[in-house]
């Protein structure tokens, strides 16, 4: 077990700064998620931590030791790749045993460890198969078993669920998180799927263009976004951003906090005339798409709400002051961060 720390970590490819001075601390035993849009540098950051990519600048510290210059095998890390990268010519058993063989572990001990890892992941019965004879979910578990078997200091996972179909993914998410809790190994998990990030991470680091925009618990990230990017990247549909009349600030509020409000304006309430274009019925909820002035806005009504707002008309809507976040219209930074505890 070990904490992972990066200090001013940078990676410059020919033209692009893929990772741009990242300071990140992942606590011992923590499940940290790197979340960000495609091409923001998540994989590059992970590969540098794993030693597969040499940083242009900065340091990587694992378990208090500076490993920046060490090769992957000296770092005691295990990695699960998006493609799983199982060795296609080896049986499941040999795939899982490969890291142990590389350590020149004795055969009986190898067998014991492989059996242990396989039983944790419930793949004991697949030992003699080749990877091509496995389903996507089974492959993922073999890849996890191969990572687990050496009891590494750190797990690095790069979108390990993206090859699964939606149903399989939900249960795999659950299994993976339970598994991590059980072995309590420091885990850095890369994804561009915010549902995965919110559901699994102890903390989430939201990345954009090689930088970390915000690092916090899922609730922090969702409720107290540090800037406009985080506010609109996390949440689906994203946070509404309505400019103030003088144009200096953006008022941000989540679609579920935007409700229909008849009657006079009250204290602690901001009211808007909301022109509805379109209604989307999604079973558990309804979404209303429309505009406040020129700004596109979405309202989300739970299935339990009795009020409606049929499209084609303008209705009085409101949001509680406590649900409003304020951002600087120019820089996109939060201006009311005093509210954050």
């Amino acid at each position: 077990m070990a904490a992972v720390e990066t200090r001013n970590l940078t990676k410059q490819f020919d033209q692009v700064k893929a990772v741009d001075g990242i300071d990140l601390v992942c606590e011992d035993g923590e499940f940290l998620v790197l979340l960000g849009p495609s091409g923001c540098g998540k994989t590059t950051l992970l590969r540098m931590i794993g030693g597969l990519e040499a940083p242009t600048g900065g340091e990587i510290v694992i378990g208090g030791q500076d490993v920046t210059k060490l090769p992957p095998r000296a770092r005691k890390i295990a990695m699960v790749f998006q493609s799983y990268a199982l060795y296609p010519h080896m049986t499941v058993y040999n795939n899982i045993a490969f890291p142990l063989k590389a350590q020149k572990m004795a055969k009986p001990e190898q067998q014991e460890r492989v059996t242990w890892a396989a039983s944790i992941l419930g793949i004991d019965h697949l030992m003699d198969r080749k990877p091509r004879q496995l389903s996507g979910g089974q492959r993922q578990r073999v890849a996890l078993a191969r990572a687990l078997v050496r009891e590494p200091n750190v797990f690095l996972l790069d979108e390990p669920l993206s090859n699964l179909d939606a149903q399989r993914r939900a249960s795999a998410r659950d299994e993976l998180q339970q598994f991590q809790r059980r072995v309590a190994t420091t885990t850095i998990y890369v994804t561009h799927d915010q549902v995965e990030a919110m559901g699994m991470g102890d903390r989430i680091a939201v990345m954009d263009q090689g930088r970390i925009r915000q690092l916090g618990t899922p609730a922090d990230i969702y409720n107290q976004p540090a800037d406009v990017f985080v506010a609109t990247f996390v949440g689906s549909p994203p946070m509404n951003l309505v400019p103030t009349p003088d144009g200096s600030l953006l008022l941000g509020f989540r679609p579920e906090h935007f409700f229909r409000h008849e009657g006079p304006a009250a204290d602690g309430l901001k009211t808007f005339p909301f022109h509805v274009h379109r209604e989307e019925y999604l079973g558990a909820e309804r979404l209303y798409y429309g505009e406040i002035g020129e700004t596109r806005v979405v309202a989300r009504f739970p299935v339990t709400a009795t009020t409606t707002a049929p499209p084609g008309d303008t209705y009085p809507f409101a949001v509680h002051d406590r649900d409003v976040r304020m951002f600087d219209a120019k820089t996109g930074e939060r201006t009311d961060l005093v509210a954050v505890t």
Partner: peptide, 15 residues
């Protein structure tokens, strides 16, 4: 041979 396989072998500690 996919780069991923070589990366995996590196991480798995194979020389």
């Amino acid at each position: 041979i996919p780069q991923d396989l070589r990366d995996a072998a590196n991480v798995d500690g194979a020389g």
